[in-house]
Design a protein around this nucleic acid. Sequence first.
DNA 1: CGTTATTTGTTGCGGATGTAACAATCGCTT
DNA 2: AAGCGATTGTTACATCCGCAACAAATAACG
Lengths: 173, 173
Amino acid sequence: MTDNRLALETFLPYRLNRLAEAVSRDFSRIYKERFGLTRPEWRLLATLGQYGMMAATGIGAHSAMHKTKVSRAVTALEKRRWLMREADTQDRRVERLSLTRAGEDAYRQLVPLAREFEQSLLARLASPDKQAARTGLDALESIIGSTAKSYQSTPPIGDSGDAAGYDGPAAPA
Amino acid sequence: MTDNRLALETFLPYRLNRLAEAVSRDFSRIYKERFGLTRPEWRLLATLGQYGMMAATGIGAHSAMHKTKVSRAVTALEKRRWLMREADTQDRRVERLSLTRAGEDAYRQLVPLAREFEQSLLARLASPDKQAARTGLDALESIIGSTAKSYQSTPPIGDSGDAAGYDGPAAPA
DNA sequence: CGTTATTTGTTGCGGATGTAACAATCGCTT
DNA sequence: AAGCGATTGTTACATCCGCAACAAATAACG
């Protein structure tokens, strides 16, 4: 049973990556070709479209994007005039982000395309499989969310970050 | 019912991405900190460790990596002397890749760590949830495998996109 | 054979990404 | 209120990535 080799086909990180990459790449054509959006930009648009108004940190936490990714996506959508920044009067470090009229228009155009894409995938699944997928994803999310560090913030100081002493490849000249 | 907003929390590409990114990022610390491997390099190592000998094209197809990613990972592992190239006598375009002794040693060290990581995740799942996750992932893989274009080759003139063309390498000793 | 199309793998290039460093602000403690 | 750590968001830098172009080899086809 316990072979000394690892069967990648049943290894969870590997499976999730393959799936996410394939699905994302397919789906990206929709917003890439039609609107010239990058993936982080689409995520930002979708998050603001759903929630109306949010700060950059919240978006990063919600969509698991690195804060620099969020920052650059915000800049990009702002240049496109799809997004507005508003100073938060309570906390001047925070910028309250929201979509402009043009941004909402784009969002409204994209939502049905996203739904259609998802439908075209799920339509290929038998009903019990669909249910299993939902249940399985729910379960995985519940255990990931509790473990995952938001990785938004600077690494804690206590842990002397230095990756356990890796000097470089063993390549003696 | 059909809201005009898209609920990202139930949107399949979004869910898969969140999960894959969180899990991958956690797992990457294992091979990054201990061995200084990048993600493509880890995948290459794991694939060769499992299958023993394979050509670059096969690895790309199996792990859904772009061929340039594979090429660069091969160069990196070769510099580290963890990987050997052997000319294929049948087809001189092909290089038969395999791990050196040092590469196999690293692989043997990593496999238990990978298993341990996966266990620590799955241990948090109730048995039915574990089963649902497996079934759901199986189902999803079956439907995207048939749709995904391998994107290894140059954009097909016609539409030769055939991702299912991977029949598996020779099972090693 | 000779010509043309396809496959295998590498590389140049522009663009995307993460790390680390940073300024500005907040809040907690003294 | 002064100091100090933590938080928010941006930026410089180095690296990573994918597309397109490419050389070398093979396959397909007359």
